[in-house]
Amino acid sequence: MQGYRYLDDTAILRLDAEKCIGCGNCLEVCPHRLFTLNDGKARITDGNACMECGACARNCPVEALFVNPDDGCGCAHYIINSWLARVLNKQSNGCGC
């Protein structure tokens, strides 16, 4: 994504090359275009561009991809509410979006 970079070495995105069958689904759905296909295997070219949307993992037919499974959007309200919920030992009420 031109003009934007977020924190390096933070997003959780892992690709198990052993499992990958090279179907190319991840290449198609990734909104940040960070996969390529080499010799019948997907490869992560720019893991730091990942925003953990989870589209690749959702559409991988062989579970070769792992993305931070903590669902919910990357928004501060959501995180504050989930931290508060943990402290107060209550159910988080999400973020309202």
Partner: peptide, 20 residues
């Protein structure tokens, strides 16, 4: 500004938690 992370299409949840 930190709350605006929720409106952008490039910030990861892990990243937002870290900066918070």
């Amino acid at each position: 500004a930190m709350c605006f992370t929720g409106s952008t299409p490039y910030t990861s949840l892990s990243g937002v938690a870290k900066e918070m």
